[in-house]
Measured scan of single mutants.
Amino acid sequence: MTFKAIINGKTLKGETTTEAVDAATAEKVFKQYFNDNGLDGEWTYDDATKTFTVTE
């Protein structure tokens, strides 16, 4: 399945996608990506659209 992340950061904005077997796996991938890029913020997840949003 394809999962999307919308990034609303102070220094980084945009979208990225990942292929994962479930939402928990996708969340781990996205959180690692955000940690690697120095992002920290509020997380939400919309199961209907398979979209994570992080707002810094």
Rank of each mutant, 00 (worst) to 15 (best):
Q32Y: 04
A5E: 05
D40W: 14
K31W: 04
F30S: 00
K4M: 06
K28R: 13
L39R: 04
N35M: 14
F3A: 06
E15L: 11
T11M: 08
D47F: 06
T55W: 10
T49W: 03
D40S: 13
E42M: 09
D22N: 07
T49G: 02
A20M: 01
D46G: 00
Y33K: 04
E27Q: 10
D22C: 03
T25H: 10
T18K: 02
Y45N: 01
E15N: 06
E56K: 04
T16C: 15
D40Y: 15
E15Y: 14
T53Y: 13
T16K: 11
I7S: 04
K31Q: 07
T2E: 12
E15Q: 09
F3K: 05
G38E: 04
G41W: 15
E56D: 08
N37C: 15
T49F: 03
E27N: 03
M1N: 11
A24L: 11
T51M: 03
E42P: 05
L39M: 11
K31E: 04
D36L: 13
T17G: 02
A26I: 01
G41E: 04
F52A: 01
F30V: 01
T51N: 01
D46Y: 02
T2C: 15
A23L: 05
I6D: 03
I7Y: 15
T51E: 03
A48G: 07
K31M: 08
K28A: 11
G41K: 04
E56S: 07
A23W: 10
N35Q: 14
N37K: 14
Y33R: 05
T18F: 15
E15M: 13
T16A: 14
V21F: 09
F34G: 03
G38D: 05
A20G: 02
A5K: 00
V54D: 01
F34L: 13
T16L: 15
Q32C: 06
N35W: 14
T49V: 04
I7G: 03
D36F: 09
N37Q: 14
A5H: 02
A23I: 06
D46F: 01
E15W: 14
A24Q: 10
D40A: 12
V21C: 10
N8R: 11
T55D: 05
A24R: 08
D22M: 01
A20S: 05
T44E: 11
K31A: 06
D46Q: 02
D36N: 08
D40H: 13
N37M: 15
F34N: 00
T16M: 15
A23Y: 09
T49M: 05
K10F: 09
I7H: 11
Q32P: 00
G14I: 15
T49Q: 04
E42S: 10
G41Q: 06
E19P: 03
E19R: 14
I6W: 03
D47V: 08
E19N: 12
D22K: 01
Y45L: 02
Y45R: 00
G41I: 08
T53G: 02
A5D: 05
A20F: 03
K13V: 10
T49L: 05
E19Q: 14
N37A: 13
E19S: 10
E42D: 11
L12M: 12
E42H: 10
A5Y: 07
K13A: 08
A23V: 08
K4T: 13
A5I: 14
V29L: 11
Q32S: 09
G14N: 06
D22H: 02
D40G: 09
T44M: 07
F34P: 01
Y33V: 05
M1D: 13
F3C: 09
E42V: 14
Q32K: 13
F34A: 14
T51R: 01
E15D: 04
K10H: 12
E27V: 04
G38Q: 07
T51C: 02
D22Q: 01
D47W: 06
T55K: 05
D22I: 01
V21S: 10
G14C: 15
D46H: 03
E27F: 15
V21Q: 12
K4A: 05
D47K: 07
K10T: 11
T53K: 04
L39F: 14
K13C: 15
W43H: 01
F34K: 01
D47M: 04
A5S: 03
L39I: 14
D40L: 12
L12S: 08
L39A: 05
D47L: 06
K13T: 08
T17C: 14
T2V: 13
V21E: 09
D36T: 09
W43C: 01
D22L: 01
F30T: 00
T18G: 02
T17L: 10
L12Y: 14
T55C: 04
V54Y: 14
T17Q: 09
N37Y: 14
G41H: 09
I7E: 02
A5Q: 02
T44N: 08
L39P: 02
I7M: 08
I6N: 03
A5R: 00
G38W: 10
V54L: 13
K10W: 10
